[in-house]
């Protein structure tokens, strides 16, 4: 089968039981996406598929033959960090770093969701522009667990980038 990840086409002969996460990590050498729970409870495996953030541990690889898949490796390498990655470093928005690729992928798609005006549980209104303040960011990022609990710094990093791009 063929998979398009970070704009590159990969060939892989995968077991039908293989998750999208395990395809990337175990077959294609893309180990940036992490496995924390394998049950969609922690968000460490978050990838961006066709523009939307998903838990890649909860979906089978064989379902994504024609999809546009983006992982942390597609956002910026260590020598070419994108603004969100840089903001995570300067705000110390991680400690052990294990949840970090998922946090960054999640935040990338989340900023787009807000731009499209999608409301959240804490939004005052269901229509109109979304302002990504601390409460909105916290709410929208609560699918990504950080056991080191860098949450306040994660909020600061995302807000800085969201505000700069607004």
């Amino acid at each position: 089968m063929q998979f398009t990840i970070n704009g590159q086409v990969h060939e892989a002969d995968v077991d039908i039981r293989t998750s999208l996460l395990d395809l990337a990590r175990e077959h294609l050498g893309l180990t940036g996406s992490k496995k924390g729970c394998d049950h969609g409870q922690c968000g460490a495996c978050t990838m961006i598929v066709n523009g939307r953030r998903i838990n890649s541990c909860l979906t089978l690889a064989v379902m994504h033959q024609d999809d546009d898949i983006v992982t942390i490796e597609g956002l910026g390498g260590p020598d070419a960090l994108n603004p969100l990655q840089r903001a995570f470093v300067t705000h110390d928005a991680f400690q052990c770093g294990y949840c970090t690729p998922g946090q960054i992928c999640s935040a990338t798609a989340m900023i787009e969701e807000a731009r499209m005006g999608w409301p959240s549980h804490v939004s005052e209104r269901l229509d109109g522009d979304v302002i990504l303040d601390n409460d909105e960011i916290s709410e929208r990022m609560s699918g990504n667990i950080c056991r080191c609990a860098a949450y306040p710094n994660i909020v600061d990093a995302i807000r800085e980038v969201a505000e700069a791009g607004a």
């Binding site: 180990t31 940036g32 996406s33 992982t71 942390i72 490796e73 956002l75 910026g76 390498g77 260590p78 020598d79 960090l81 990655q85 840089r86 995570f88 470093v89 300067t90 110390d92 991680f94 770093g97 970090t100 690729p101 960054i104």
Partner: peptide
């Protein structure tokens, strides 16, 4: 900033 920051935010820390 963390010495290992770039590796961790780019998913290259092993």
């Amino acid at each position: 900033d963390r010495y290992d920051g770039a590796a961790k935010v780019s998913g290259t820390a092993g």
